[in-house]
Write a protein that binds this DNA or RNA. Structure first.
Lengths: 126, 126
DNA sequence: TGTCATTGAATGACGTGTCATATAGATTGA
DNA sequence: TCAATCTATATGACACGTCATTCAATGACA
């Protein structure tokens, strides 16, 4: 039953896993060491930073990341506690929140992004 | 500072993340539902199943998966508790252990592998 | 052979993610 | 306008992974 195609699929999958984990781990460690935030925190920061409009975004964020809604909520908790982001209630729908980078958040993001891109380049492209 | 190349890298990375998470989640759910084991458990089972020799393998396993040594140890705990695998002490190095599939483990693996390959095919190739 | 460093694996504390649920605000329709 | 329903987010219990540490066995070298 173990066809050649099966083996190829498994090999392909393992290779994806490895490159995914290696890249994620490298970025995570670097960001943790230099900026004291994890990869998921950075990715939320990154998404907020690239949203130019100030639409109500907690919801939108959830759609742009594989994270669960509750994971996003907790990541934002940490970012807020760290003073990098703030939740602002939405005028037109008071259930919703949108996120704003604080000054500190903007500064950290722009430094961290350089690191992030460099590590992506190092790990993805070669 | 946000060069075109940066954007491409980020896009590439998000696409890897998404396909990785989607595939992993799909497999994990299916295996959980039908065989009551998670993806990591299956992957260890799969590695054990494909090791023909009976060398001392806990160690070797750690080298073929992105999982930590301690993660492997805990996954094996669960597999052993579920009666799918057994730890056998090594004659030539009594610190080492190798793993054997039980009958139940072998049976479950061969069924689960079919599902696993099918989902890989569905998610990776199209 | 006795000490010291090393190696294979297990364990406990801890962080973070997931699922199910809770809560508050919005929407619909009679 | 008042239920009933739906939607956006938060929260608590729990599972699992990581790190640091521990323990036992091995190896190395005097």
């Amino acid at each position: 039953m173990a066809t050649t195609q099966d083996r190829q699929l498994v090999e392909q999958w393992r290779s994806i896993q490895n490159s995914y984990f290696r890249t994620a781990a490298a970025i995570d460690r670097a960001l943790e060491a230099k900026f004291d935030i994890g990869l998921n925190e950075f990715e939320i920061l990154d998404l907020v930073a690239e949203s130019v409009d100030s639409a109500c975004r907690m919801k939108a964020l959830g759609e742009r990341t594989p994270m669960t809604q509750s994971a996003v909520s907790k990541v934002v908790d940490r970012l807020e506690k760290a003073g990098l982001v703030s939740r602002v209630t939405c005028a037109d729908d008071r259930r919703s929140l949108y996120l704003e980078l604080t000054e500190a958040g903007r500064a950290l993001h722009s430094d961290a992004a350089v690191e992030h891109r460099a590590l992506l380049k190092e790990n993805l492209g070669e």
